[in-house]
Each structure stands twice: as C-alpha cells, then as structure tokens.
Amino acid sequence: MSAWRQAGLNYINYSSVAAQILRRSLKPEFRADALKRDASHVRITPWADGKPAAKAQQAK
C-alpha cells in the first residue's frame, strides 16, 4: 500500500496534487492558461433526514 493511501488520501487527491504541480511547471506562455484549471468553486453540503446536515464546507 502506498504511503499516500495510508495517510488517508485517495488517488483523486493524488491526481489533483500531481496536476497542480505539473501546471506550475509549464513554460510561462502555457502556464497562465493552465492555472485557470486549478480553480474550483464547487461547494458540497452533506444532507441527512431531508435537511442540510452541516454548514456548507468549502472542500479544498
């Protein structure tokens, strides 16, 4: 088992970290455009018993 999975990460987390670093390591002319893909605005609220269970969390 890989170290990151033991630390509680999954492959999706692994992948986003890897993609982030790759975007940062591009030549300047491509970087600006690529960094736009870093952004995410989605907010996820867990629901239980027909009501929002907790305050909306801004997942990292």
């Binding site: 605005h41 996820i44 027909g50 997942a59």
Partner: peptide
C-alpha cells in the same frame, strides 16, 4: 424526496467546469 438526498453540490454553472470540480465531487 428530500429524505433521499445525501449531498448537494452548488456553485455550478457560473464558470466552465474544471477537472478540479469533478475531483471534488468524486471525493465527496
């Protein structure tokens, strides 16, 4: 059907979706 809902994601559709958005959803 509010009893069937386990999670709601919002702030979708203002900007074009990114893979990061999809990753967050998938993690959720």
């Amino acid at each position: 059907y509010s009893k069937h809902i386990v999670a709601v994601a919002n702030e979708i559709g203002r900007l074009p979706p990114t893979f990061t958005d999809a990753s967050k959803l998938a993690t959720a």
